[in-house]
């Protein structure tokens, strides 16, 4: 039982951390509470379905060379397209209301509803099956774990480390940290904040899309027009319990929620049906002890 909690909890925790990272990144840099984060998760999944599974790619001769490249190309294309879409949406929709806290929330909620309705119109309400990228399974501590989950866990950890290095070492990452600490001073130093915000939004949406493809392909294995709600709830509760704007916090929060979910699913009678309240409960308990979350200060990313 302990092994189950440890293994399965860690696997989902890694993916949750990836999901929450995008949410915390855009908040930390630009102060936008992006309630459409779950929608980018969904957009990524649907684009992956279009490119990878619906046979779109079999039309292009390039992938005929080696069929295993199909899903990978679909994954990369889905993530890239989500990034472009989110940057455009940010420029058109979120940018005009930037700085107005409630206005940003209203706008992003409307955006989420619009994306949901568009997907309903294009794909219809039924669930679409998302097949795993790789098949087969391995034994870990006597527990069967599918290769897809291992791959998802590995890729999310790698992405996390890459992001960590990116924000701490690269020039753009330095600019992001500078803007999150003091926007006006950063502008005076010659940082183009508008472009930086767009870039951060694209990055955040791409992380959401990656998490979307990996979570749907490894755990739930379907895509539906309302899968944006649960990821949104997950990401904001993880981010709040870790501290808004803190990368460390989202990593720790993701794992805490992953373990807690598994513990409830196994330990509580009929726990599977109340699994969705676990992140909130953990969040409320943490907030009662520490009102700013585990690593939260004001709008700030750690350095």
């Amino acid at each position: 039982m302990i092994e189950e909690i440890l293994v399965y909890g860690a696997i989902s925790g890694g993916m949750y951390a990836l999901l929450a990272l995008g949410f915390t990144l855009i908040y930390g840099v630009s102060g936008v509470v992006n309630l459409a984060h779950g929608s980018f998760f969904m957009v990524g999944t649907y684009l992956f379905y279009v490119f990878g599974i619906s046979g779109f790619f079999s039309l292009i001769p390039l992938t005929l060379l080696d069929p295993t490249w199909g899903p990978l190309a679909a994954l990369i294309l889905a993530i890239a397209f989500t990034g472009v879409i989110s940057a455009a949406l940010y420029r058109i929709i979120i940018h005009p209301v930037l700085g107005d806290e409630i206005g940003v929330m209203v706008v992003t909620v409307s955006l989420a509803l619009i994306i949901q309705q568009l997907i309903l119109m294009i794909f219809g309400p039924p669930n679409l099956r998302i097949n795993p990228l790789v098949t087969g399974s391995k034994q870990i501590w006597g527990l069967g774990v599918t290769n897809m989950r291992l791959l998802a866990f590995g890729v999310s950890l790698i992405l996390f480390i890459v992001l960590w290095i990116f924000t701490n070492k690269s020039k753009v990452g330095n600019a992001m940290r500078a803007v999150s600490q003091d926007r006006e001073a950063a502008m005076l130093m010659g940082i183009n904040t508008e472009r930086l915000y767009m870039l951060t939004m694209a990055l955040s949406a791409m992380l959401a899309a990656a998490a979307g493809v990996f979570i749907t392909a490894s755990i739930t294995e379907y895509a539906a027009p309302w899968i944006w709600l649960h990821p949104l709830a997950l990401s904001f509760s993880i981010v709040i319990l870790g501290g808004l704007g803190s990368i460390k916090g989202s990593l720790l929060g993701g794992f805490i929620v992953g373990y807690a979910e598994q513990a409830v699913a196994i330990g509580v009678p009929e726990g599977g049906s109340i699994i969705s309240i676990v992140p909130f409960t953990v969040m409320v308990i943490v907030l009662l002890l520490r009102p700013k979350g585990l690593f939260g200060k004001r709008i700030e990313m750690e350095d």
């Binding site: 709040i240 409320v284 907030l287």
Partner: peptide, 28 residues
């Protein structure tokens, strides 16, 4: 408890309350 937090924290914390209750109501 929720008024110990402010701004976006408060918005997101309050957002979670109805979701908790909805899940509890559906609990077998």
């Amino acid at each position: 408890p929720s008024l110990r937090v402010k701004g976006p924290y408060l918005a997101l914390v309050t957002m979670s309350f109805p979701l908790i209750l909805a899940a509890l109501l559906k609990w077998y």
